[in-house]
Design a protein around this nucleic acid. Structure first.
Length: 159
DNA sequence: CGATTAGTCCTTC
DNA sequence: GAAGGACTAATCG
């Protein structure tokens, strides 16, 4: 069942089957209603408001064994940082292009941070449209900076 | 520098 | 099976 959700950059939609998050679509989905009050809505709205993130909602199982390993690797990339296709491919013992295919097939963008993987020079690609990749990365850079500043204050005081 | 090419292997039809 | 990429390092002008 598709649910709509407002973000600073327009509405997005996610498919919650009652127990797990099945897919996420960046952009408008015709049939989607705004009634969402489930763990996926909680996580996504926290993300887009810049609040501390709760635990991930239950996610649909990965389609292939490789995607299972990929998912784990992606979730290990911290907010505000990025990783190169080549580097991640080596880490997973595969080729950069193959990694790109697997990333393109990710049904859960944002929640599974496939946008944190960028090309050696430039952004690389993004299934939902490059503009979203740029926005998400900029947003996360901002959040990470804010977080770092806060830690600094805790440590040294404001003066 | 920019253009071209070969190597790579996961997804999809 | 076959084809085609969300890539990259190397080679060539």
């Amino acid at each position: 069942m598709w649910h709509a959700l407002a973000t600073p950059w327009g509405t997005i939609a996610y498919d919650w089957d009652g127990a797990r998050l099945v897919r996420v679509r960046l952009g408008h989905v015709p049939g989607a209603a705004f009634a969402g009050d489930d763990p996926a809505a909680g996580w996504l709205s926290a993300y887009f408001r810049g609040d501390p993130l709760p635990c991930l909602p239950p996610l649909a199982l990965p389609a292939t064994p490789f995607q299972a390993r990929l998912r784990k690797a992606l979730l290990a990339i911290p907010v505000g940082t990025t990783c190169a296709y080549g580097a991640l491919a080596r880490e997973l013992g595969t080729s950069p292009r193959a990694l790109g295919q697997a990333l393109r097939a990710n049904p859960l963008p944002v929640v599974i941070p496939c946008h944190r993987v960028v090309a050696a020079r430039g952004l690389g690609g993004f299934a939902a449209g490059l503009i979203w990749k740029a926005r998400l990365l900029a947003w996360e850079r901002l959040l990470a900076r804010e977080c770092a500043a806060e830690r600094l204050v805790m440590h040294r005081g404001t003066d």
